[in-house]
Simulated assay, not measured.
Amino acid sequence: MTHSTIYSLFKKGSKTYFYSTLFFPKRVKEEVFILYSFLRKADDYVDAIPQDAEGFYAFQERYHQAREGITTGDVVVDSFAHLSAEKKFDEKWTLAFLKSMEMDVTKTEYQDMDELLTYLYGSSEVVGLFMARIMGLSPDSYPAARYLGRAMQYINFIRDIDEDLDLGRVYFPQEDLKMFGLDSLQPEEARRNPEGFRSFVHKQLDTYMEWQVKAEAGFKYIPYRYLIPVKTASDLYKWTGAQIRKDPLVVYQRKVKPSLPQIISHVFSNSLRLGFN
Rank of each mutant, 00 (worst) to 15 (best):
M1H: 14
T2P: 12
I6P: 04
L9I: 02
L9G: 01
K11A: 07
K12E: 10
S14T: 04
F18H: 07
Y19R: 07
T21S: 15
L22I: 13
V28F: 09
E30M: 11
E31H: 09
F38K: 06
K41H: 05
Y45A: 00
V46S: 04
A48C: 10
A48N: 13
A48Y: 07
P50N: 12
D52W: 02
D52K: 03
A53G: 13
G55H: 06
F56G: 00
A58T: 08
A66K: 04
E68I: 08
E68V: 08
I70T: 15
D74K: 13
D74M: 14
D78M: 11
F80E: 04
F80C: 07
S84Y: 00
E91H: 11
W93A: 02
E102A: 08
D104Y: 07
T106V: 03
T108K: 13
E109M: 12
D112Y: 11
D112E: 15
L116W: 03
G122S: 11
S123R: 00
S124N: 00
E125K: 00
G128S: 13
S138K: 04
P139V: 08
D140T: 12
L148Y: 01
G149H: 00
G149F: 02
A151S: 15
A151T: 03
Y154E: 10
I158N: 03
D164H: 08
L165D: 05
D166A: 14
G168T: 06
Y171P: 02
Y171T: 01
Q174V: 04
D176F: 06
F180E: 01
G181W: 09
L185A: 09
Q186L: 13
Q186R: 13
P187T: 09
E188P: 03
E189R: 03
R198M: 10
V201K: 02
D206V: 02
Y208T: 00
M209L: 15
W211R: 07
Q212E: 07
A215M: 08
A217P: 03
G218E: 00
K220G: 14
K220R: 15
P223R: 10
R225Q: 14
L227W: 08
P229L: 04
K231E: 13
T232A: 14
S234V: 12
W239H: 07
W239I: 03
T240S: 06
A242P: 02
I244N: 00
V250R: 06
V251G: 01
Q253M: 12
P258M: 05
S259W: 14
L260F: 15
Q262F: 07
S265Q: 12
L272K: 11
F276H: 08
F276R: 09
N277S: 14
N277Q: 13
